[in-house]
Simulated assay, not measured.
Amino acid sequence: MSRLHILGVGMGPQHVTVEVAEALRACDYVLAARKGAEDTLLALRRTVCASHGVELVAIPDPERDRSDSLGAAYPRAVRDWHDARVEAYADLIAARPGTIGMLVWGDASLYDSSIRIAEALAARGAIEEYRVWPGVSAPQLLAARHRLVLNDVGGAVHVTTGRRLRAAVEAGLDNLVVMLNRRLELDGLEDWSIWWGGNLGAPGEELVAGRVGDVLPEILAARARARDAAGWVMDLYLLRRP
């Protein structure tokens, strides 16, 4: 039977912990989804694997329905996509049993589906067991780069996505880490404070902080620079009510 190692690798080789490196070297190969001919994150995975002498096996990622990414059909579309991934991964694992690694950007605990995929693989008997090793998460990097504590003294921090930001604000939450932003929609929040980061830990990393109304044009320009430098942009920010 096969076993799966889910390995958090932050934003690349510089964030691989000693514990993750040891678990990676124990893998027979690393399984990864290939999302297109110019998959920069797949190339970074190859770099991580090569630095530890482990083969990377890439298979095409199933298509995902993105036609209703903000609506009621979104959860169903994601479940269908995950089911297709599980099917493809199970077929490969059946052909190549052993100890298999999956490299997770940041950490598997936040907005990542690797653990759900592993649970499904285990439920259908494709793997005997799976384990998870933590990595450096994007909120950790954001806090470190801006020299921040994410919560006020005795306070809380709410982690959400860009598409759920308005609901969080309307619910009265006032200290928010916002991830997975397709665009920045901060109208009406001009007096809030923001600490923003784009492509943290990667070449072309960008940082901006200040009052939203003052620095939003700077953030948009930095976001464009990060996209130009890497061909993609992953950004997040801490947003705090005045």
Rank of each mutant, 00 (worst) to 15 (best):
Val78Asp: 05
Met11Tyr: 15
Leu31His: 15
Val132Cys: 13
Asn151Thr: 14
Arg116Asn: 08
Ser69Lys: 07
Ala84Met: 05
Ala26Gln: 14
Gly135Ser: 02
Leu176Phe: 10
Ser2Phe: 15
Ala123Trp: 03
Val212His: 01
Thr40Ala: 06
His5Gln: 08
Thr40His: 09
Thr160Ser: 05
Arg3Thr: 14
Arg240Ala: 07
Ala120Gln: 15
Ala144Cys: 03
Arg223Phe: 04
Val149Asn: 06
Leu216Gln: 05
Trp105Phe: 05
Ala26Thr: 10
Ala224Arg: 04
His5Phe: 09
Val132His: 14
Ser2Lys: 15
Gly135Phe: 03
Thr40Tyr: 11
Val233His: 04
Val18Trp: 10
Arg182Lys: 12
His158Thr: 13
Ala221Asn: 09
Pro217Glu: 05
Ser51Ala: 13
Pro60Lys: 01
Leu176Ser: 13
His52Gln: 08
Ala229Asn: 08
Trp192Leu: 00
Gly135Met: 02
Cys49Glu: 06
Glu22Gly: 11
Thr160Asn: 02
Asp187Ser: 14
Glu206Leu: 00
Trp195Thr: 07
Tyr130Leu: 00
Leu56Thr: 15
Met102His: 13
Tyr111Trp: 05
Thr161Arg: 01
Trp232Leu: 04
Ser114Asp: 05
Ala221Glu: 09
Arg45Thr: 13
Glu87Trp: 12
Ala33Asn: 15
Val178Pro: 11
Asn181His: 03
Ala77His: 13
Gly154Lys: 09
Trp105Arg: 00
Val20His: 03
Glu190Asp: 04
Tyr29Ser: 10
Trp192Cys: 01
Asn175Cys: 12
Trp232Tyr: 11
Ser113Asn: 07
Thr161Leu: 04
Met179Gly: 06
His15Cys: 03
Val149Trp: 06
Tyr130Ser: 00
Gly188Glu: 01
Arg64Gly: 06
Lys35Leu: 01
Pro139Lys: 04
Arg164Asn: 14
Arg163Tyr: 12
Asn151Arg: 13
Glu218Trp: 06
Asp80Lys: 09
Ala84Cys: 05
Val169Lys: 05
Leu238Ala: 02
Arg85Met: 05
Asp91Met: 03
Leu24Phe: 12
Glu190Thr: 07
Pro13Arg: 00
Met234Trp: 01
Glu128Cys: 02
Trp196Ser: 03
Ala37Tyr: 13
Trp232Glu: 03
Asp187Phe: 09
Ala108Trp: 11
Glu55Trp: 09
Ile59Ala: 02
Tyr74Lys: 14
Lys35Ile: 01
Ala209Gln: 13
